[in-house]
């Protein structure tokens, strides 16, 4: 066998069974069932909104981010096997972390959705698997604001392209990618080539990293 064997993580394994997830949030039942208002149909620039939270502690920007991302984080966690109440609480925690760690958001290396995903993923490991999650040291962001803005814009374009490429993958591969991120892949499935087109976005991020390293030295 040449592939790395990785422990299959079924949703139950990640979440320690539904029983645990249920008790996790038993004290905080859902109140009401009305949906929050949907954001404007002309989609805001999520990255700019995170920057407004980062630089100005802007609550209106935060509310827009919340209305867009919190229901998706909740959906993501439920796909990963959490029950509704646990997913709701965890989604709120993720949004609190977004506010608290906004200073570490670097738009030249991650879009808002990417960054929020990493917070949600780490929270999932922390809460549901009760494991420590080692993460690489955060690099300080931004040599100068103009370079940041240009790099960030380019990264957003690349991220959109990657997202479109993901949509265009054959159904089987797309399914593997989604299930990998929901944490429900078997060893063999994780070993399969996904054919993800990472070329241009990778060189874009590497460029941003190199600029950052130069500015630091």
């Amino acid at each position: 066998m040449t592939s790395v064997s990785i422990h299959a993580t079924k949703p139950d394994a990640i979440l320690g069974g539904l029983g645990y997830a249920r008790t996790y949030h038993s004290s905080h039942a859902l109140k009401g069932a009305e949906a929050l208002p949907e954001p404007d149909p002309t989609e805001p620039n999520w990255t700019d909104l995170v920057i407004r939270v980062r630089d100005e502690q802007d609550e209106a920007a935060f509310a827009l981010l919340f209305n867009h991302f919190a229901p998706r984080i909740k959906g993501f966690l439920m796909k990963s096997g959490a029950d509704a109440a646990a997913a709701e609480e965890c989604a709120q925690d993720v949004m609190v972390t977004l506010w608290q760690k906004a200073a570490q958001f670097d738009p030249t290396r991650a879009s808002a959705a990417t960054w929020i995903f990493t917070i949600a993923r780490n929270r999932r490991i922390d809460v549901f698997r009760r494991q420590n999650r080692p993460e690489p040291t955060d690099l300080p962001w931004g040599p100068e604001p103009e370079a940041e803005a240009a790099d960030a814009l380019a990264l957003q374009q690349e991220t959109r392209k990657l997202s479109a490429a993901l949509d265009a993958l054959p159904a089987k591969q797309k399914d593997i990618v989604k299930r990998a991120f929901y944490g429900e892949l078997s060893h063999a499935e994780l070993a399969e080539e996904t054919g993800l087109p990472l070329g241009t976005i990778k060189s874009r991020i590497r460029l941003a990293l190199e600029r950052l390293r130069r500015a630091m030295s």
Binding site: K74, G75, I116, L166, V177, F181, K202, I205
Partner: peptide
């Protein structure tokens, strides 16, 4: 840099995930 790309794939999966309604006072 490559790892940031895999995270971006995760971001795309999250962004396209079906929404689940949050409580009114969330």
């Amino acid at each position: 840099a490559t790892q940031c790309c895999y995270d971006a794939v995760g971001g795309a999966v999250l962004d396209k995930c079906e929404k689940e309604r949050m409580s009114v006072d969330a």
